[in-house]
């Protein structure tokens, strides 16, 4: 099943500081919900392990994350592909960072993904909600990065 997500967030940090965080595997590992490990294999490519629980089903996922079309500190394309016991997922997101008002950065995303396997069937009613929830968790965690410093 196909999932499309669009949105934007305002973060209290300067745009190029945000850019550095978004491409930093250490920050990403802390921010991505359920991320156990994230290891850079070649520049701009990572291997990631996730443990997620969605409603009654849970499981681990192994996947790759790639960054491309890098235009620091303005935009990039993040490609994700992974599979686990619950199913498979692929997706790409175009992320655009721009100046917000009064020392903030605006981060906008346009993502399109496809989910297959068991979770596509049993999760069809909640997948979009879960995806939105995970994105929200990601940004909440990302924002904390800058509050702490």
């Amino acid at each position: 099943m196909n999932i499309n997500l669009n949105g934007n967030e305002l973060i209290f940090v300067r745009p190029n500081e945000l850019w550095n965080s978004v491409i930093d595997p250490v920050v990403l590992q802390r921010s991505i919900p359920g991320c156990i490990s994230m290891v850079e294999t070649v520049p701009g490519e990572y291997v990631m392990t996730l443990e997620l629980k969605v409603a009654a089903v849970g499981g681990s996922f192994e996947g790759t994350v790639g960054l491309s079309e890098m235009d620091p500190p303005n935009s990039c394309v993040i490609s994700v592909s992974g599979s686990g016991t619950l199913g498979t997922g692929t997706g790409t997101a175009r992320v655009t960072i721009s100046d917000g008002e009064s020392g903030t950065a605006n981060i906008a995303y346009e993502a399109a993904g496809e989910v297959g396997g068991l979770v596509a069937g049993v999760g069809q009613r909640i997948l979009l909600g879960v995806a939105k929830h995970l994105v929200r968790q990601f940004f909440t965690a990302l924002k904390k990065e800058f509050v702490a410093s």
């Binding site: 099943m1 496809e114 297959g116 396997g117 068991l118 596509a120 069937g121 049993v122 069809q124 009613r125």
Partner: peptide
């Protein structure tokens, strides 16, 4: 089935 070949009705919810 959906267009990707996934069975959409595999529990009694669906």
């Amino acid at each position: 089935y959906d267009a990707n070949g996934q069975l959409m009705t595999q529990s009694f919810l669906d």
